[in-house]
Amino acid sequence: MTADAANDVGGLVVEQLGVDVVSGGVAVRVVDDVSWVVRAGAAAAIVGESGAGKSLTARALVGLLPRAARAASGRVVVSGSDTDVDVLSLDEPGWRRVRGARIGLVMQEPRAAFDPLVRIDEQVGSALRAHRGATRAAARAAATRALLDVGLGARHATAWPHELSSGELQRAALAAALVADPDVLVADEPTSALDATVAAQILALLRRERARRGLALVLVTHDLSVAAAHCDEVHVMVAGRIVESGPVATVFGAPRHPFARALLGAAPARALPGTPLPTLPPATAPQAWPSGCRFRDRCPDVAAVCAEEPPWLTLGDRTRVRCARVGVDA
């Protein structure tokens, strides 16, 4: 897949993204060869265990990697409302023009996203002041409209962050991310700190705004049922790499990679009550990831061939699997 694939409609193209984390003077590739395309109006889910590199991938897309990490290879191209931008080539002043204006971010913990000493409307409108040169009054008025769009009223606009519930704050965070009308929205576990009922409201809101604005949505989640219900495509990550990609119906309906099968099998939503849930050995730290297939130290279906780099296998229905054992008779 190339950048051109998304150019006609806009969206996000990620090509061979690699992220290194430097620990004790040694760089470890914790996100490796990650590629996908999300078209405008579509949603892609990134799923996998804690420590698989989902959040680092999301942070690389918005230029907010932690100090010890850096995007070491690849291209991340945002296209749509303006000229295409390879965000990995941006310096910090460049990022300040792009972040919020072309690509927005919603994080897991909305309380951490707001300055406790600044009123909600001021913070929600800040992207307009930064990117569109809006006056304070115009930015606040636009913020109030954006808050209205996400179901919050004037009462919330002038409130302090501590006066809002987590669900209300996450709505406000969404309003802040969308106020400057970006082409791409990256949502990193946007509902995992929320109740089921509030989470359902936020997800419904994301779905509506995506359709209305033609947003390309990247949803990082460990909740497979959320990915299944709200995304078109899913990318399954293990140990920093994508091992299976495809339409959610195909990947969740008939997962091919042994890790994808194990992940889905462990989901309490799928298993029958009364029997132990199928589990996997815990994931290892990046320093201990094996060569060849990164899942082979935990794989129930491992063979000698897995010590080599696994090939990508393209199946029908745009599904791709990175496993030497798929298609091999047991």
């Binding site: 009462r155 809002l164 969740f252």
Partner: peptide, 29 residues
């Protein structure tokens, strides 16, 4: 509460947006 829970991973027959509970629970505001 049960309707708000997304139920169906990989069961295409049950896929779709979970229903949403009307109105919000009580909060500080």
């Amino acid at each position: 509460l049960f309707a708000a829970q997304p139920r169906a991973v990989g069961r295409s027959d049950e896929r779709g947006a979970p229903r949403v509970v009307a109105a919000a629970p009580p909060t500080a505001t």
